[in-house]
Design a protein around this nucleic acid. Structure first.
Lengths: 229, 229
DNA sequence: CCCTAGAAGGGTACTGAGTTCCATTAGGAG
DNA sequence: CTCCTAATGGAACTCAGTACCCTTCTAGGG
């Protein structure tokens, strides 16, 4: 059993104290004292007290950026789903730690804000990727900046929805939920881009009738009226 | 000319100093000294140094909440557009002040994060409204939580896009741009909810032909292929 | 084996935000 | 005039974060 690293001793002490007294009632001095380390050491390993809770957020951000940049040659929706899944998996691997963090951030406004801010950074990555994407084989239009903005927002909203469900223990198979959610987002945008496109290809309805158009109208109305969700 | 209120003297001093030396190089003591007031007074009017820059954000948040709650009987998309416009108009009325704030928040990370956090609070309002909305005449399905999440994200993304354009001086008619952007968002979701619905009503294509279906296929393919954006 | 350079931890003192508590003053009601 | 209240001012405190310097341990070259 090797000695745990200084960094790990700090996080362990911090989380233990946060659980005991809450985040705000715990000072950095408390943490370093419990860890048996000096105050200076703390700030050498973490830029701030908040950083103990969000340890390698920066690294994840970079990974996602790389993933997006790397897969820009493949089809764009797949690249997005891929990168989003990378993010989700990161949290899943953290397991219990991610849930403890969630418990803390949920109750401390300052941390909540900080988390939101970092989500915005992910959103920015996606926005830039979407805005700059030269669409693949099927589509060919350049995405308008507004559309890219909206789509990026939708993507991270879907991710966060699934992630939060898992963090609250409401999801048994988050990876599957995420891919479904992402499919929903992609459908939303590809469907709107070319109205005759449906989920997995092209839907064509052809019919032939001898009836007069006026005679058909009631039936058509009925059809349209029932087509929700 | 009546004496400006204490609050206004503080904001004026603060913004002047932020312009001169930047936000981080200005201390609260600097501000109160310039305003000719005591330090305690500052914190009685503003919870924090950041609050000087975001003065009545809370009030706007409440207004939007009320607007949404009030108009929940009318058609939902209209209520959303209405509330979003309320937010935009709030900034437009601030005029130059809003732009100065933008200049400051753009360069100071801490303020940027704070702004993002308050945007998230708007998004939450919209999400709750959308999730709880019993759809009006046309649609009748209850919105899934995920869908509400995504839609709320799209709504505020559209708003922020237009707002930021205006703040940067890139938009001559932001109100118009906003309503167009909102229309785009609403189309996105209503179109996806009922595939045969188009922008402004119902699109029905009826045709009759004596040709064999195989003979039609090339023409149909051609049609679909050209239908981007 | 010694010497040295550099990395890693530790300590002290400072700045500045935000809080607490108490004193002061101004203005209005009685 | 007095009492009450609301608003301002001020002193002292806590704590996060920074700057600077010191100690220790270790690796590697001589």
């Amino acid at each position: 059993m090797t000695k745990p690293s200084v960094r790990d001793r700090l996080t362990a002490a911090a989380f233990a104290l946060f659980d005991e007294r809450g985040y705000e009632r715990t000072t950095v001095d408390d943490i370093t004292e419990r860890a048996g380390l000096g105050r200076t050491t703390f700030f050498r390993h973490y830029r701030s007290k908040e950083d103990v809770i969000f340890p390698d957020h920066d690294r994840l951000l970079e990974q996602i950026g790389e993933r997006l940049r790397a897969s820009s040659h493949s089809t764009a929706p797949a690249a997005i789903s891929d990168a989003v899944q990378l993010a989700l998996l990161h949290y899943l691997e953290e397991g219990d730690l991610a849930r403890r963090r969630y418990a803390i951030t949920s109750t401390v406004p300052a941390l909540r804000d900080r988390e939101i801010a970092s989500v915005a950074r992910y959103q920015r990555l996606f926005r830039e990727f979407i805005a700059g994407w030269m669409v693949g084989a099927a589509e060919m239009a350049t995405i308008s900046p507004l559309r890219a903005e909206i789509m990026a927002a939708a993507v991270v909203a879907a991710h966060n929805y699934v992630l939060r469900r898992w963090l609250r223990g409401e999801s048994g198979d988050p990876v599957r939920e995420l891919s479904e959610a992402m499919q929903q987002v992609i459908d939303l945008f590809t469907a709107a881009a070319s109205p005759s496109d449906a989920t997995a290809g092209t839907t064509i309805v052809a019919f032939r009738t001898g009836q007069d158009i006026d005679a058909l109208l009631p039936a058509l109305r009925n059809l349209v009226g029932r087509s929700a969700e």
